[in-house]
Simulated scan of single mutants.
Amino acid sequence: MNEDNIKSNYIKSSIKYWQALLTYIEKTTVITTSTYSKESLTKYGDAVEGVLMNSTLNGVGIPQKNMKWIHFSQVNRTTDERRKAFLKELPKML
């Protein structure tokens, strides 16, 4: 495979190039809930944005610029009313 012919839907690993197969997915939204804030999650080992979104989803062909992360924090310290309000507002956030 000639490197000049490699388009954006090919990902380079340390060994070879492979083709990202989910290029038909134009955008994605990751929704999480946690006892921690979004800032804490990104500060202490960014598993959602750093690994899932920027590495895994981008690596299979989903454009990074079209990803969105919605997070509801401190689910253990909130009320059922706030949880229900979050779920009710969720479609507007998408």
Rank of each mutant, 00 (worst) to 15 (best):
L90P: 06
S34F: 00
T33Q: 14
N66Y: 08
R82W: 06
I62K: 04
V75S: 08
T33D: 07
L22H: 06
T35C: 08
K38P: 06
Y44N: 15
G45T: 06
M93V: 05
L41V: 02
W18F: 15
Y10V: 02
Q74P: 03
W69M: 04
K38Y: 14
N66S: 10
Y36Q: 07
K43D: 08
M53H: 03
Y10C: 04
T28Q: 01
V48Q: 07
L57S: 01
L90E: 06
I62P: 03
F86H: 03
P91I: 05
F72T: 01
R83M: 14
G50K: 13
K88D: 14
N5R: 04
Y17M: 02
G61D: 03
I62E: 02
F72S: 00
K88R: 14
K68F: 05
G50I: 11
M67F: 03
R82L: 13
V75Q: 04
S40P: 01
V51T: 13
T56I: 14
E3K: 14
K84L: 07
Q64V: 10
L87F: 12
K68T: 09
F72E: 00
T78P: 07
D46K: 11
Y17P: 03
V30W: 04
N76S: 12
Y24G: 15
K84D: 06
Y17A: 04
K84Y: 02
E49R: 10
K7H: 07
N5Y: 03
S14F: 12
Y10Q: 07
V60H: 00
K88H: 13
W69F: 06
W18Q: 07
K12C: 04
Y24F: 15
T56F: 15
K65T: 11
N66Q: 08
T56Q: 11
V75G: 10
W69L: 09
I15N: 12
E89T: 01
S55L: 15
Y44A: 09
T42G: 09
I6Q: 02
K7E: 09
V60G: 00
S55R: 10
N2Y: 02
L87H: 12
R83V: 11
D80S: 15
E49D: 13
L94V: 08
L57A: 02
N58P: 01
L41R: 05
K12N: 07
I6S: 00
K27F: 02
T32I: 00
S55F: 09
K68E: 09
G61Q: 04
L52M: 10
A20Y: 01
P63L: 10
E49G: 06
I15M: 10
S13R: 11
N54Y: 05
A47H: 09
G61N: 02
T56S: 14
H71P: 03
T32Q: 00
I6H: 01
H71N: 02
V30S: 06
V30Y: 05
K92F: 12
I70P: 01
E26V: 09
R82C: 05
T56G: 08
G45I: 05
K68C: 06
T42A: 09
E3D: 14
G59L: 04
Q19E: 15
E3C: 03
S8Q: 09
T33C: 13
G61F: 02
W18L: 08
D4K: 13
G50V: 14
S55M: 13
W18P: 01
E39T: 12
G45C: 04
N66H: 10
I25M: 12
K27C: 08
F86K: 01
I15V: 14
E81W: 05
E49I: 10
K16S: 13
E89P: 03
T56Y: 12
T33V: 11
W18V: 08
